[in-house]
Design a binder for these strands. Structure first.
Lengths: 204, 204, 204, 204
DNA sequence: CATGAATGAGACTTCATTCAT
DNA sequence: TATGAATGAAGTCTCATTCAT
């Protein structure tokens, strides 16, 4: 059941590493704990990963690959910008609610001081991409006369910000007693506010 | 509270500790580096702080005390809810742009796994407070008939989210090559969108 | 002595082991490197040799057997002692110039602390034999009235020493930039000096 | 008796290291054993030496410095070349008989594969110097018409070789049962042979 | 008070050796 | 016979923490 399956073995190690690193950070994590969680010996770990840093780096890469790649191909739709924004937000909320993804931000944020490259990779591969996608969405809305002529760059941050906050909330504060937040509800409310504004008179 | 040693000494240690912990996280920080940065010996460090955890905990307390306490007493104003929201956002952006504050999120996020109490303290003392303040602000707007009847809890997240994103952006991504973000500009744009919405026709 | 595996296999392992051990010493050599050089797996190595020490010991035996056995059968000649000394020196220089032999001294010298038996084997099988042979040669010269009545034991060291120095020189110093030494030239010069002395007037 | 004496401490470590490295070679030596022999903890070792290699390198340097520097200033004498050669050989034999010096060759020879720099240092600082000194001595003898016109470079090897052999003999073979060799006796015999030659008739 | 010196405990990493296939 | 995979044991190195001065 566990002899000759290099790919499985590798994934199971990465999976265990995710938990250990997520719980303790890079410096605080112990290789022995990772091994123990996989049910192998430390030495076997080193058969697959050159050292602790390699394991950590490949873990992050794996997480980024695993979680973001096929993200949001929905952009295609020829619905209205409003609808597409709403759909995007729902999809994003759904993805970010996945625990396998949610702790990546914490990990990368926490270790960005020690591993700047990881921050860069996460930025390039995931964050920047998503923000650019949102920018495009906003820009499209403006071009179609559907949205006001706001700054797409900043607007994209307005769109994404609350979701980031929500993810971190659930990752950081929920474990210490705060009420977990429904990303879906947050997304719905946020899109509503974004589109229609807070002001009373403004809504037709 | 500090005995014979001038409080200066204590503060200079905490200040040094801030830099070291911010740069390396708790586990990655070395007591010797803290001592070296202050210009004292490791042993002297232990004269002031029982151990590494004590230093870290007192650091966090000190940071929260130092940075958050006088936060946003502005709530007083009896201007319109819109105006007060705008003012709040500007003030918040200003405070969060301060480097002495900006790295705190990263630190807490990174160490929340090992130090749940930090997450809790930060939540209780800082985050929760500010969000509650925003909720009150929104609620007031609704009560006055100025804002639509949105969910104040979620709306508060809509307000704060982009600022959080902005701070993290400048903390995490700017150091690895991303263009730093102007929190003031972000706040301005965000409040505009929040109040008036993105939709074209909606603005009077 | 080797079963199904052709002796070639055994020899090729020993040959690879020679290079690895010669380059790194016993403790520094890795079984994996030996296996890799042969092109087999570590496990297969253990099919032929019980463990690392066994491999090393058999290697030394093999080297001694391989290199020394047929050494200097020339002693027979019934030429003059001078001639025989000269011939011996030339032959020895020739043999010692062979790289397959030259590194043996270094190996044994380096590991004599950890493997006293090696030192003993080398002494018994090789060094002692050669020195005894030289002693006999000198003694013969004395007996025939050809040589002065020197101490044959010490004289044998006088004969052999420079060749040893030469071998070590080429093994130790030449690789780090020193000019390699011609053992043949050294032997020729040395025999000349040994026979005729350095002093001017002494030569007829 | 052992608190605040950095230089003593350092020397006592090097002295212990000498024994451990001499007995086991670089790879075979354990830092813990060195520490144990000094009577300190492993960590204290690392207070003085960055790592195992640093300890080893500094040990070799220390040995070379300690043993060779003031070597053979005797060159001054204005005695005959023969006398000076004899004196040199006696002095050299005396120095080389010192156990603190005698194992250096073994150590460097054994590790020359892993630490080429050591071989180079030993060559440059010790071996090359002594050989050059002998060359000068021979050349002087030739210039004065006292010696025959031999090749000084090769003659120097003829002079030094047996002493090297003797040292290695006592280092390598004596510990495994061979009769130790008197370097003084060897030197005396060797100089006699070198000067007067082996041949009977040649001596006036 | 201040500190240089010392160390115990622990973490990473390596490698000879074994075993199921 | 051959080997890929696995690991126990060991060794290097680090660092929070203590203590004598």
């Amino acid at each position: 059941m566990a002899r000759r399956t290099p790919p499985d073995r590798r994934d199971s190690i990465l999976s265990a590493a995710r938990e250990i690193f997520a719980a303790n950070g890079f410096a605080g994590a112990r290789m022995e704990d990772v091994a123990k969680r996989v049910g192998i010996s430390k030495a076997t770990l080193y058969l697959q990963f050159a050292d602790k840093q390699a394991l950590f780096r490949e873990l992050i890469d794996w997480l980024i690959e695993t979680s973001l790649p096929d993200a949001f191909p929905l952009t295609l739709a020829d619905a209205s910008a409003s609808e597409r924004l709403a759909i995007f937000a729902q999809e994003a909320a759904g993805k970010l609610a996945d625990d396998d993804v949610a702790f990546l931000p914490r990990l990368v944020i926490g270790e960005s001081g020690n591993f700047p490259e990881l921050a860069k990779a996460w930025h390039d591969v995931a964050v920047s991409r998503v923000l650019t996608l949102i920018e495009g969405l906003v820009q499209q809305g403006i071009d179609r006369g559907e949205f006001r002529a706001v700054d797409p760059y900043l607007a994209a941050r307005s769109v994404a910000g609350p979701l980031v906050l929500g993810v971190l909330w659930n990752t950081i504060f929920a474990p210490v007693g705060a009420e977990p937040m429904s990303l879906a509800a947050l997304a719905r409310s946020h899109v509503d506010i974004l589109l229609h504004g807070l002001l009373q008179g403004e809504t037709a």
